[in-house]
Structures are given as structure tokens and as C-alpha cells.
Design a protein around this nucleic acid. Structure first.
Lengths: 368, 368
DNA sequence: CCACTTACGGGTAACGCTATCAATGTGCCG
DNA sequence: CGGCACATTGATAGCGTTACCCGTAAGTGG
């Protein structure tokens, strides 16, 4: 082989890379006559720095108009800020709004979101969590219905990742959550139907193992109890949040000897199914039957008549959730200790649309 | 002074800093049997990499679920690409799938996505683009229906940003696009109805100023022409892609003296409306009337019977779109010259579900 | 005045990636 | 068949910051 000088040029010449004009921590350090480390300490508000030194550094910072490079900072280990988002049911409208919120907040706080879809099996759910952990997630947010999954929550607890569940009723369990007050919303809807004169109201329950279902049912029954109206047990039928289950439930309700004047479904899909069944039976909505839903998903406005329903501010909830995880991650890192989970309630709203009217032959609704 | 070993321990042991589980470019490189540099090249879509090598790297990336650390990337000098995503119509299911695709690809290539919702007015659309430009977007992707908007496209041309439109039929205009072949898909669907024995097929057109509408209509009529069947002009009615417009259109079709045996709606919402009208008129679907849609949005499976329809791989299309913008941005930067726009076709599929059957009294469908 | 803790500040090595350039391999021309 | 252009890949050196580990100076008790 011939002579080779694999000497990497003159090591003194630092002029290899491009020059970005930004002032660095090194510039500040030189000007203040200290080491970069000390500057870092001052900038980050750590304590063990003599006031005089601190002042000198601060002066230099100001003079040079220095501001730390966030990329370098996060690279150096300050905060990783990659958070995972697991979803299972591509429940279209919900997921979309949720993503919009999460993304928006993510770009604002410059955290990276990692999406992970998972099958609704135990193995699938646990696998998704592990995959996220392996990818370096520092926290996780869970939209429904995963936020109710034992497998997911359990696996997350094992991994010790800060977790925020959205729209679950189940609070505690080591995860924070962001939700509306399903119970109160359901009561309010029921009372609204009361004020219109409805007394025979059919209720289609949600999936029995989701907490929100239970809350919504409780709100409904307690409204009856508090108003002193009698609630016929035959008016409560089981549903599972799917359109299909809504068809069956509505069929049951509308073939009773004494049919209801209104149907309150635990979500919009089932409410839409109820409208469809009513139409097939020749009933006018809302003339012969009022129908209300819950969630204000897109189907609520994609059918006719449009559904009166409860709106959850999904986008805002996702933003809050993301915010909470980021905070949790920060605490987790500094203190290392157990993060205490929080329960964040956001406000819902009752959206009045065309699927509701006073029952036929009823007295004019009482003024509110 | 006493003995001091300021030797930094065993230099082989890299175990000093914290362990973030994240997989790094080094892991990928090792697994693929190449250098980190090559991985970087592949991930960033540079050209001078042999296809075999590229494939190996891609496989490793997938296997390890690798996603680049944006902090490190931007620190190393490549400024993080920020790309804008403007949407107007929160058409739930579509947007959701679209976002999933875009986000997924975004985390893979570690570009930042900036969401921007806009009103459907000229000012709103132009404002959204300007806002994105002001925020430092380096490129834009447009889901429908914005990809058809003159205002948006015009404003983008002015700003000179690389743009990729998804699911538009309008190609050229300085923007690249990703789409399916609406014309061919529509023909295929029509021919499918032919094979089942349908000859009297009602067609509900889409919004007249969207290119996809026109393509779909052309596919329908040309299938008739090629098969040599006569197409009754009364069978073609105007719709506007909304559920509401579908109700009116279906009403028109089903009150003709000679009703169709099948209805082909230009999208699922209108097809769902047709099913609803049929039910209200006491017609069985698919016994008395077959109904097919287009797009395979969530409503297709949220009604009963579920709709036979054309599925667009929305998620994949979003991924491709993002990829194209990123490449365009890179070219834009390197060459500075005009990026030539590309027309990327992806494959659709005909999804057969329960809303279709042979017409009553028709001969058994010909074997395919 | 000595042993011993504590406050302060510095040196060094990553963090994960890409720019740059050197070192191969490949093909074509004279 | 030398050699030169070009395609492909690897090695090295940072990007700006903080974590970790040690010195040194200053305070403390006996």
C-alpha cells in the first residue's frame, strides 16, 4: 500500500461545519469568565452558585441576548418528551378530533407523538404498550375505549410510565384522567326531556364494562328518582355502544305494549339506530318519538333529523391530557417518586337539534 | 498528592449516562449491517443508495420501530422540516384516517406537522395558507375537499411552497397529487352491478365542482356505453355529497314510474341516505333495491345493511403524500429549482358487503 | 490546628444525528 | 489495461447542552 496520511487535517482548525450565528452557552461562559457548566447552572436556576457568579453570568446572558438551544437541551437529556398515544377502535370522528387536539398541543409544546394502533385482544394491548416503551415513550395518553382496559393499564403500571386517560370514569388506578361529568350530563339531558313533557323515556345502556355507561345510567335513573316520576324497568334495555346493538335495543323498546315517547341512547350511534328503526316502523321523529344521543360524534349531524345530544369538547380534552402527561413526566424525572394522579373535569354542553319535540297530546312544556 | 486515577474508567463500558430505551440510528445500522450514515441517508430519502441496501435498512427500521430523534436531528444541522396540513371539513372518518397516516409517517421521518383548520370561505382559506407560511411551513398537504379549492391552490402557488393534494382528480396546477383512479373504480363498480343482473341503475352524482365527481360519473356512463346497455337519463340525479342531498336524490329516483333496481351513489353518505329512504318507503335492501357507495367511510359499516363500496386506502395515501412533500422540500432546497409535480396513483378495492343482491326475477348472475 | 463536611465550580463525556470527505467499488473510454 | 468519472458506503467530527464525577475552597467542631 502506498503512503497514506489519514491524519484528519489540522485538529486546531475548527472551521469545518457551517456557522449558525446563534450565541451559544460557550460564548456566554467566556464573556462571564466561567465554565459553560456554571452558565448552565445559572440558566437552569440551580442553587449552588455564588450570587456574584450568578450575577456575572446573568449579565453576560443579557448582553449577548443568549437563549438556550432547545434541541441541544433536550438531546442532552433534559427532557425526552416523546409520548405515546394508543388507540384501538378507529372510531372515526372521535379519534379525529382527539388527534387534532393532541397534535396541536404537541406542536405547541414541541413534544413528539408516537401513534400505536392495537388489536382489542389482551396480547395486542399489552404488545402495543411494550412497543411504545421500547420506542422510548416517556408517557402515554389513552383515548377511549382503551382507557378502560385492564391489560393496558396494568402493563403501563408495570412500566411505570405516567399515563393520562381521557373520558374514562374510572379514576385512580395510578393514571390521571380527563373527562366530563357523565353523571351530571345524563341527568341534565333527562331533565330536559322532562321539561318537554316526556315521562315514558326509554334508555339504551352502553357497554356494561365501561365506566361511562354506568355513570350515564345512574344520571338517568337518579333524575327520575329526584323528579318523583316512576321509571318502568322495561324502559331500560341493554346496548353495547354499537349501531347494531342500538337496532336491537330500539326494536325491543318500540315493540312494547306501551311504547316510550322518547328514547335516550347512551351514545350517538345507538341513537341513530333508534331513529332508523322508528322510520322503518313508520314513526315520525320527532313527531311520534323523540331521540337523544350522547357524544356529539359526526353521525349526530349526518342523519336526519339531526340528533340532540351531549357534546364533549374532545379536542380540548386531548390538549389537556397531553399537557398533563408532559407535566407528569417532568415531575417523574425530577422527583423520581410516585406521581399523584389528578382527575380533571371539563365542561360538556347539551346540544339541541331537531330530533326532539314535546310528546303528542302533552301539555305545552313548562317554561324553564 | 495521593495516587489518582483520573482515567475515565474502562472506555469500553458505555454505561454512564441514563438509559432511555429509545432505539437509535445505531441500533438500526447494526441490525441492517450498514453504517449509521447509510441509515440516515435512507431515512431521509436521499438517492445514492443501492435498492438492496435501502430495503435492508427499511426492514430494520420497521423491525425496530425506529423513529429519529428530532432534537438530535435539528441539532446536527438539518433543520426540522415543518409541514402544514390544512383541513376544512371535519369529515370525521376521513380526517381521522388521514391524520393517522400523516402522523405515523411524520413520526417516522420526524417532521413536524402543523394543523390548520379553515373556514370554507375564500378569505378563510387564504388566511389559513398565509398563517401556515408565517409559521414557517416548508410544504403543505391538502386532504379533500380543500385540494380542489382555487383559493388555496392559488395562495400556495404564490408562496411557492411544495404542495401535495390528496384524492383530487385535478392534476397539474403546480401541485402533486395522490389519488385513486376514480374513473376505473366507478367503472368496476358499475360492471359488478351488471354481472349481478342489474340494468336499471340509478346514479347519484357528487358535488359538481369536485373533479372526483366528474370522474366517477364518467366511469359510470362509460361502463354503460361499453356494455352496450341503454342508460335512461332520468336515472342520473344531482347530489352534493351530503347525506341531506342524498335523501332528495334517492326520493327522486324512487318515485319514478319505473324505479331502479340498484342505486350507485357517488359517496357513502348519500348511499346511506338512499338506504334510509328505501326503508321509509317499505323497500327491502338489498331484496328490493341494491345500494352501493364510494369511499368506505365509517358510515358504510355503521348502518344496516352494510354498504358495498369502493375503499380508498386513505391512511396509506396520507403517508405517501407526506413523503412526497418531504422529498419535494428537499429538492426545493438543494436544487432551488422548480419541483416537477407528480401524479401518484394508489390502488383502490371494491368491498362487497350486504347492501347488494341480484334484482328480483333476474336470471342468476353470470359466473365471473 | 487537624480531620471532616459542604458549597462551589470545572473537566469530560455523552445525547443521536448529519455534513464532510475519504475510501472503496463499477463501468466506460481511449 | 490504465485511468478517470461516478455511484455507493464508511469514518470522523462536531451541533449546544447537561449529567456525572472530582477537585478545591470555605466552613465546623473538637
Amino acid at each position: 500500500m502506498m503512503a497514506r496520511t489519514s491524519e484528519p487535517l489540522d485538529p486546531k482548525r475548527p472551521s469545518s461545519r457551517k456557522q449558525r450565528g446563534a450565541t451559544t452557552i460557550l460564548d456566554v461562559a467566556r464573556r462571564a469568565g466561567v465554565s459553560p457548566m456554571t452558565v448552565s447552572r445559572v440558566v437552569n436556576g440551580e442553587k449552588n452558585v455564588r450570587p456574584a457568579t450568578r450575577a456575572a453570568v446573568l449579565a453576560a446572558v443579557k448582553a449577548l441576548n443568549y437563549s438556550p438551544n432547545p434541541a441541544a437541551r433536550s438531546l442532552a437529556g433534559a427532557e425526552a418528551a416523546r409520548i405515546g398515544l394508543i388507540y384501538s377502535n378507529p372510531s372515526a370522528s372521535y379519534l379525529s378530533e382527539f388527534l387534532v387536539g393532541a397534535l396541536d398541543e404537541a406542536s405547541r409544546t414541541s413534544v413528539q407523538i408516537m401513534l400505536e394502533k392495537c388489536e382489542a385482544t389482551s396480547a395486542g394491548e399489552r404488545g402495543a404498550v411494550r412497543k411504545l416503551v421500547a420506542s422510548g415513550a416517556a408517557g402515554v395518553i389513552l383515548p377511549p375505549p382503551l382507557c378502560e382496559s385492564h391489560d393496558v393499564l396494568d402493563e403501563l403500571r408495570i412500566s411505570g410510565l405516567p399515563t393520562v386517560a381521557v373520558a374514562t370514569g374510572r379514576f385512580g388506578k395510578g393514571a390521571s384522567c380527563v373527562r366530563i361529568n357523565d353523571y351530571a350530563a345524563s341527568r341534565e339531558m333527562t331533565n330536559y326531556l322532562f321539561t318537554l313533557g316526556h315521562r315514558r323515556i326509554g334508555f339504551i345502556k352502553g357497554h356494561p364494562n365501561q365506566t361511562a355507561s354506568i355513570e350515564r345510567e345512574k344520571g338517568f335513573t337518579s333524575a327520575f328518582a329526584d323528579a318523583g316520576f316512576k321509571l318502568d324497568p322495561a324502559m331500560m334495555v341493554q346496548g353495547y355502544f354499537s349501531y347494531r346493538s342500538g337496532l336491537d335495543a330500539a326494536e325491543t323498546l318500540l315493540t312494547l305494549k306501551q311504547v316510550p315517547t322518547a328514547i335516550f341512547a347512551s351514545n350517538d350511534d345507538m341513537a341513530a339506530a333508534a331513529v332508523s328503526v322508528a322510520h322503518r316502523k313508520g314513526l315520525d321523529v320527532p313527531g311520534d318519538l323523540s331521540v337523544v344521543g350522547f357524544d356529539d360524534t359526526s353521525i349526530a349531524t349526518n342523519i336526519w333529523p339531526e340528533l340532540t345530544t351531549i357534546r364533549q369538547p374532545i379536542t380540548a380534552m386531548a390538549e389537556v391530557a397531553l399537557d398533563l402527561v408532559v407535566q407528569a413526566i417532568r415531575n417523574h424525572k425530577r422527583s423520581g417518586g410516585e406521581a399523584k394522579s389528578v382527575d380533571h373535569l371539563v365542561t360538556y354542553s347539551l346540544i339541541k337539534r331537531g330530533s326532539v319535540a314535546s310528546p303528542k297530546g302533552a301539555p305545552k312544556p313548562a317554561a324553564e
